[in-house]
């Protein structure tokens, strides 16, 4: 008997026809929903309950944050274009769009860093009140997710630059894209809950 090498991990024929890693990403996002759900839940429980420190209305600058939120939203569009590019085999455009996504992500993170420091100057920090605690931990967790996404996209960009990304590997971009869009959507919810809905 002769048998060809079949690697379960990379077998192309899966039961459902879906790639393993894609299913994994979906499962991970389901899990991450619960993670953010719990963090947002915590924030909601403590909304308006603070004994000390600045109040949300003292520190929030909604137009400013809206701009960085918009940057993040636009990055999703760039992500769609990056995926479309690699699926066409257009590696040059893939690289451009990837840089766009990462750049917009960096704008968002930069905005958050600035926001955190200015809030800090106004006396809001992790320890000062339940508001400070829940605000920084919730948005910080999200920021960490965005940062992770940026690193990931830049790694794909480096690989593309080295000629390692081909049309056949568009799935890699697709999976990173799923993650990126998810992080974006989560921000819409956080932005609404934390900044927009008045206490």
């Amino acid at each position: 008997m002769e048998h060809t090498a079949v690697l379960p991990a990379e077998a192309h024929e899966t039961t459902t026809g879906l790639n393993h890693r894609k299913v994994l990403m979906w499962a991970f996002l389901g899990s991450d929903c619960m993670l953010f759900g719990s963090l947002i839940g915590t924030y909601l429980v403590y909304r308006g309950r603070y004994l000390a420190g600045p109040k949300p209305t003292d520190v929030f600058d909604i137009p400013y944050t809206s701009v960085s939120a918009l940057a993040l939203l636009m990055s999703s569009l760039a992500m769609v274009l990056a995926l479309a590019a690699i699926q066409r085999g257009d590696i040059r455009r893939l690289k451009i769009w990837l840089l766009c996504v990462a750049g917009l992500g960096l704008v968002f993170i930069g905005g958050q860093v600035y926001e955190f420091t200015s809030f800090g100057e106004e006396g809001l920090n992790l320890a000062v009140s339940t508001f400070g605690t829940t605000f920084f931990v919730l948005t910080g967790f999200h920021g960490t997710h965005v940062t992770f996404g940026i690193v990931w996209l830049l790694m794909i960009w480096i690989m593309a630059k080295r000629g390692q990304m081909t049309q056949a590997r568009s799935l890699d971009v697709e999976i990173a894209g799923l993650y990126w869009h998810f992080v974006d959507i989560v921000w819409i919810i956080i932005f609404t809950v934390v900044y927009l809905i008045p206490v």
Binding site: R49, L51, T133, V137
Partner: peptide, 14 residues
């Protein structure tokens, strides 16, 4: 570790 207030009743946490 960092002195946050998630369960710090002195800061009104529940």
């Amino acid at each position: 570790l960092f002195g946050t207030n998630f369960f710090n009743t002195a800061q009104g946490a529940d």
